[in-house]
Design a binder for these strands. Sequence first.
DNA 1: TTGAAAGCGCTAACAC
DNA 2: GTGTTAGCGCTTTCAA
Lengths: 349, 349
Amino acid sequence: MKREKKKMATLYDVAKVAGVSPKTVSRVFNESHLVAKETRSRVLEVIQKLDYHPNALAASLKKRFSQVVGFVVPYGSDFVFRDLNMMEQLRGVHDVLAEEGYNVVVSAPLSKKDALHEAMRLLKRRLVEGIILYPSSGIGGIISECTHKGLPYATLGVGFAGQEHNFVEVDMTESSYLATKYFLDAGHRYVALITRPRGFFNYPENDSYLRGYEMALSELGKEVSSELVREGDFTFDSGYREFRYVKQKYREVTAFLCASDPMAYGALRAMADLKLQWIKDAEIIAGDGLPFTQKIFPFLSSIANPSYEQGRQAGKMIMALLEGKREMPGVTLKAEFVLRKGYPARLSF
Amino acid sequence: MKREKKKMATLYDVAKVAGVSPKTVSRVFNESHLVAKETRSRVLEVIQKLDYHPNALAASLKKRFSQVVGFVVPYGSDFVFRDLNMMEQLRGVHDVLAEEGYNVVVSAPLSKKDALHEAMRLLKRRLVEGIILYPSSGIGGIISECTHKGLPYATLGVGFAGQEHNFVEVDMTESSYLATKYFLDAGHRYVALITRPRGFFNYPENDSYLRGYEMALSELGKEVSSELVREGDFTFDSGYREFRYVKQKYREVTAFLCASDPMAYGALRAMADLKLQWIKDAEIIAGDGLPFTQKIFPFLSSIANPSYEQGRQAGKMIMALLEGKREMPGVTLKAEFVLRKGYPARLSF
DNA sequence: TTGAAAGCGCTAACAC
DNA sequence: GTGTTAGCGCTTTCAA
């Protein structure tokens, strides 16, 4: 703060030079239509000449409203910025808000515990007007505090059992069902599911990957074995670990439904390490269908996660809340099962 | 803005209840050591009771300093948020700034032309105190304006020919040299380079991939063929396109150095489509060495780009500038050539 | 160690 | 259509 600044022109400077009142200058920026054409063009000229730009801080202070929204994610930044799925969500949020002149502050707390404090810090210190949250354990506390105090928030997923508003979730039930059914129809006798951690959103019952998986199995009178429902954490390494565990213990399991792309690639890597053969020994379906992974080998069928759209919807939701709505009905998007048969050309070694 | 807010406690509320002056409360937050212990603890109690949080907007307005930094990237958000390399940079910036209590506003203009305006808008409207810029065409204008007006900025790379300060760049010369030399030593007679667009930073001469490549070739008395130096744009598709062009025209070219990971995967994909065989028909070195791509097959040797560290350095640089330094000497990091021989286990089809 | 007064740059409310 | 006044919530003098 020791940096000395060139004084920038203020409203008053412009007003003085243009020979009008400060309020008139303010109007030129905010309610241009209430100003006479001539006056306006004269003011605009001076604005140009003095290189005047309104001070957003001062305006926000007075208006008691800043056009800034926070995007707060839990876990360390290494988790977030490396997760293309989250980045797609952020991109959706960013695009919608940018279109309306809002700005986005991105914050990934340094430690997981800080996530909650961080969100409230941003809000209460008025650094942001509302927040978009990625659900994680402890989010229930934030949500109830926000609700209680009337602070605008929206969650990218259902934050806790019983949350009825302000969420944008993606339902994988149907696509997960179709994926499992595809496996079974293709002749696989056992299908494993590598899904998210059970307590992930503090909401164990709401795993739609699991729900669709169970539906497909029970439809065919098959039992759901707890040994074949594995908990990963969306990362490559957890996919590797869980695939290996299942495949080494149960050779006969030949189909793996993974709840994220990185987990699918971890499973593929485990396959290679175990010297297994693609399709014959194991077939894998990926859980995100991200733009990049859709392009590389092997071409995986996937449960395509509409994360960009999810972000956009969350952006729209927070804006509606900022503009006066007390609460918004939850939105549920559907993931789509994308079958990629044939694994067209592939690299030979 | 129609949303009515619960009034939050202000400094005055706290002062009144605690029976001290507003300034004393302010001191408790900012210069705690100048307040008598008893006074402080009494004030802290009231702060707790009233759930008081200082209004950052008001403080910034008065202090003429906000702890917010902008991260501005050119091109659409689809380019940025999907580029893991840029995300690593952002992550580095975020981490350093978060550690010091700064916040980061991320902005990817909706259209490429807006990038420059966007950066200046954030700065001049005092939404951010300084900006970190990703170089792109037109950046020269921003930089000279910032320099002229004393606005703090740092660039992730050299912004234009002659920029002597405030940049954090990565030099690939040595690693690119080593990569090319590896190819030649391994018996490849012709090496192609798929590099960034020539005018990318408005700075055609400063392509360090190219420089290293040329060094290795000329050391062995080989000529640099303009047909084998291709311009990509870092994307998968451009890698695909340029590989295909070269390989179809010049069968004898069997080594490809790509300036980004996505381009390398695009090239791999082209290999598959052309039914070529890995190593025998073509070997590829990737240009980023991102955490994710390092894990998938085939294991590619790479020119490992220290993008996270680059982001951290840029974060430190902008903070130094905010704290009073007029300009900072440019920083040059070195990429490292990582040889991944043997391509250990791999997936069989 | 503490306090009073002034004002950061803007806009809301109300005049005219 | 335009101007005046007051004040958003804080911190910076400067004084006590």
